[in-house]
Design a protein around this nucleic acid. Structure first.
Length: 555
RNA sequence: AGUGCGAUGGUGUAACGGUAGCAUCACAGACUCUGACUCUGUUUGUCUAGGUUCGAAUCCUAGUCGCACUACCA
């Protein structure tokens, strides 16, 4: 058995670089979101990757906002992104903005013009598209390609000065219109946008394109390992071309395959539709794959980090089973969350031989997984709520719960024997009856009886009422984006199911938003921010594994 | 069609010419005052066809399949 965890391909590259003394063995990464939306689980893995590599190799990781398009970007998103990264448990070494570099980038552009490697083009967007060629045919040169350096310098300065309208001119790199890589066919470096920028205001009316901002920003920050997703692989030759022509710090780009998740969608466009068309309640709806949604759902940051670590990193197409994420969530919650009793679908249980008007108070351990978890007081009385599904009038042999003649342990209390039930005129069960064994008191059991089943309960006179939102997967199919028709056709109609009168034990009365608990035998839940002192609201984070449900499905 | 990237159990990921491993899932059992957790065990995999080699997931050749690229988005 090897103790060493094998390296992923990026770690191998980094370790080779360190060995070779590249950049004196320094490791510096960055997480470069565009502040135009909320972060999702895909970003979370990228964050874990970039910050994780920096940490592992004693390096640094910058947070850099790629804010080169003033039309879509807003400060609100900057703040949510920062909050999400912190919540995930990471702290950036520097907070930078591509817009910090606008003056420098302008200087780089002027330098390229002076080298005869960039020109101002008067062509319209349509003309540029039309002369670009396609995958199999080369493009043709722009008629403005051979302007003199002096003219280009003057025109570019005028572009900056605001002399031209949006779209009237662009600055293009002079590379090669015959390149098979379309990105190298004289890519745009600057476009004119008379728009207000969230940070630079109205100081600029020309804005650099991604390709003339990202690599340069990496270089300015002396990023050693610039990690991005696979769709940027075609940009790498251009990334390198600019750096070489400018003679600036040689950052290097590496690509990995973005992680996809089953039963959800990840593209910003689709997530936006879900929000705008009210299929969900907002970006942080607990069903959303956003970091804020998962936070509200009750997923702990440790689980997201473990998930990222477990799925690893590679360059092949993938779609990770959401069950693996749920496993990570359960694993962490199992160790950390208190057990409490809550009855989601209540039916009354009467302990007929328990004296009326009296009660017991039991000390029940909070978490069997945590020896320091302590205990809490749980009141018991003659009338209890139990789950409707924990009783069957005619039960199969493997049903270990309440059925006439069966013995069952009431968690933390007594063993009871079911004696029958009452029904209304329609045959619905309204009340279940049982008798208890006083000598079977929990922790002090001298009855000598062993029972197969233990069920949870809440004392009726002591119970508090709560709202519980039962969340399930947002989509009915594994890969909604890959089905025929519109992805929205595959939304799961039962992705949220609200229970308005769930009975919970009184110890829960003081719970605060964000608190995470296990409702015994039912799953992990967290207190939603919609909670009020009058009415607690819980979100179901994830169910427990349920072998009995599986058994029934087979039957 | 051109260029690039990729292909290992259901899913994700290792093995760097020398025993196909890990996690999850599934299944079976043990344990259990949660049908949870934990523990034990089991099933399932190298895209295809050639070649090199004592030996190939790994190297070579050819093919197949998948993905990406033709925004004044990032």
């Amino acid at each position: 058995m090897s103790e060493e965890k094998s390296l992923n391909f990026l770690e191998e590259i980094i370790e080779d670089d360190i060995k070779a003394g590249t950049h004196a063995g320094r490791v510096h990464t960055r997480f470069p979101p565009e502040p135009n939306g909320y972060l999702h689980i895909g970003h979370a893995t990228s964050i874990c990757l970039n910050f994780g590599l920096a940490k592992k190799y004693n390096g640094k990781c910058n947070l850099r906002f790629d804010d080169t398009n003033p039309v879509t970007e807003e400060t609100e998103y900057v703040e949510s992104i920062k909050a999400d990264i912190k919540w995930l448990g990471f702290q950036w070494d520097n907070e930078f903005y591509a817009s910090d570099y606008f003056e420098k980038l302008y200087g780089f552009a002027v330098a390229l013009i002076k080298k005869g490697l960039a020109y101002v083009d008067d062509s319209t967007a349509e003309e540029i598209a039309a002369t670009k060629g396609n995958l199999v045919t080369p493009g043709i040169n722009s008629p403005y390609r051979d302007r003199t350096i002096e003219e280009n310098l003057r025109l570019f300065e005028e572009m900056r000065a605001g002399k031209y309208k949006d779209g009237e001119k662009t600055l293009r790199a002079k590379v090669d219109m015959a390149q098979p890589n379309l990105l190298l066919r004289d890519p745009l470096m600057y476009r004119i946008k008379h728009e207000h920028h969230h940070r630079t205001g109205d100081a600029w009316c020309i804005y650099p394109m991604y390709d003339f901002a990202h690599g340069q920003s990496d270089s300015i920050e002396e990023i050693t390992h610039s990690i991005c997703t696979l769709e940027f692989i075609h940009h790498r030759p251009l990334y390198n071309w600019f750096i070489e022509q400018l003679g600036i710090f040689p950052s290097h780009q590496y690509e990995f395959a973005r992680r996809n998740l089953t039963f959800t969608v990840m593209s910003k466009r689709k997530l936006l539709q879900l929000v705008n068309e009210n299929h969900v309640a907002g970006w942080d709806d607990p069903r959303m794959p956003t970091i804020s949604g998962m936070r509200r759902r009750g997923y702990p940051p440790e689980a997201l980090r473990q998930f990222s670590d477990t799925i690893g990193i590679a360059k092949r197409e993938n779609i990770v089973d959401v069950g693996l994420l749920e496993f990570c969530v359960r694993e962490h919650l199992n160790k950390t969350s208190s057990r409490v009793m809550a009855v989601l679908d209540p039916v009354k249980l009467v302990v007929t031989n328990y004296p009326e008007g009296t009660e017991d108070v039991f000390d029940i351990e909070n978490n069997p997984e945590d020896p320091n978890g302590g205990t809490r007081k749980v009141p018991f009385s003659r009338e209890l709520w139990i789950e409707r599904e924990d009783f069957m009038e005619e039960a199969p042999k493997k049903f270990f719960r309440l059925a006439p003649g069966n013995n069952v342990r009431l968690k933390g209390a007594y063993i009871v024997k079911c004696t029958g039930c009452l029904k209304d005129t329609d045959g619905n069960i309204t009340e279940i009856h049982c008798t208890y064994l006083p000598e079977s008191k929990s922790g002090n059991d001298t009855s000598g009886l062993t029972v197969k089943g233990t069920i949870h309960w809440v004392s009726i006179p002591h119970a508090k009422t709560a709202e519980v939102r039962m969340y399930d997967r947002l989509f009915r199919v594994e890969d909604p984006s890959n089905e025929d028709g519109n992805f929205k056709d595959y939304i799961n109609p039962d992705s949220m199911h609200v229970l308005n009168s769930v009975f919970i034990e009184p110890a829960l009365a003081n719970a605060n938003a964000g608190d995470k608990v296990q409702f015994m035998r039912k799953g992990y839940f967290c207190v939603d921010r919609d909670s009020t002192p009058e009415k607690l609201v819980f979100n179901r984070t994830v169910t427990l594994k349920d072998a009995w449900a599986k058994e029934q499905r087979k039957a």
